[in-house]
């Protein structure tokens, strides 16, 4: 009983610390964003949100996120599959490289692409001849977004696939199942929730990406400005209502993602249990 009481005290102290921490670092700023966004009344909020450039920025963000998620899902599946199901030389190196974007500053990622595809690169004339522009254009933004988010899906999948082992796949293969049947009936049901969860994380990160995109975008209003860049631009121009109103759009995206995440986690748990 005594230890339980002690545990109770510790429990409440920890809960209080967490709540205060979250309140200071998360809830307060969120409230501040909303209150600033609505400072000049609802009509100016709506005006700021429906501004042509704000809408374009939001659409570009969604577009970059969409491409990043699709490409990273495919890449993430392949990468984690080959890391978990096969043994080969350089496997450790490969899995370390997958983690690289997490440790490298996004600014550096942006600069890498400038060096690779910019005017000073030997690739530039070739791409230019083909009419492909990467730097200061939408492809560059998508490229940067893919780079910073590609570990998210494989990082979710690798532990699940490793825990599963290869026995079930081997058993199915011995019974004559082909690779597609094995993936569809045995591997996919197992990684389904982890994959969706990885997609959600990847999307969340893609929408908020600032650094790498900032280097590559060139800040062309209405053309290469994503939502985070647009917010920065408004803020630098002392348009606080506009900046915070646009932030609230990003916030709504984030909340949708958060809700999806909770639902997915619950579903995944239920199915496993």
């Amino acid at each position: 009983m005594k230890t339980q009481k002690k545990g109770g005290a510790v429990k409440w102290i920890l809960i209080t610390i967490c709540v205060i921490f979250l309140a200071v670092f998360l809830i307060l700023p969120l409230i501040y964003i909303l209150s600033t966004a609505f400072r000049d009344g609802i009509s100016s909020y709506i005006k700021a949100v429906t501004d042509e450039y704000a809408v374009k920025a939001a659409l570009l963000t969604l577009k970059a996120t969409f491409f990043a998620v699709v490409i990273n899902t495919i890449f993430g599946l392949f990468a984690s599959w080959c890391i978990c199901k096969f043994t080969f030389r350089g496997k450790k190196v490969l899995s370390t490289f997958i983690d690289l974007p997490v440790t490298v500053s996004p600014i550096i990622a942006g600069l890498i692409y400038i060096l690779t595809f910019g005017r000073q690169s030997f690739l530039y004339p070739i791409l230019d001849d083909m009419g492909i522009q990467i730097i200061f254009a939408v492809p560059g933004i998508i490229l940067a977004t893919i780079f910073v988010t590609f570990p998210f899906i494989s990082r979710e999948l690798i532990p699940v696939l490793t825990a599963q082992g290869t026995d079930e796949e081997e058993a199915a293969a011995l019974m004559g199942a082909n690779a597609f049947t094995i993936f569809k009936n045995i591997t996919f049901p197992h990684i389904k929730w982890a994959l969706l969860y990885g997609i959600v994380l990847c999307a969340a990160r893609a929408m908020g990406e600032f650094g790498a995109v900032s280097v590559l975008s060139g800040h062309l209003r209405g053309k290469t400005n994503t939502l985070p860049l647009y917010i920065e631009l408004l803020y630098q121009g002392y348009d606080f209502t506009g900046a915070f109103a646009s932030s609230s759009i990003l916030m709504i995206f984030a909340i949708i993602v958060l809700i999806l995440r909770v639902i997915l986690e619950q579903r995944g748990k239920k199915e496993r249990g």
């Binding site: 026995d167 079930e168 081997e170 293969a173």
Partner: peptide
């Protein structure tokens, strides 16, 4: 292996859990 007429029982059984 699938054409050798073999049934295999794995140590972990490897039953398809889904």
């Amino acid at each position: 292996g699938s054409e050798r007429g073999i049934g295999f029982v794995f140590q972990s059984y490897a039953l398809f859990r889904y």
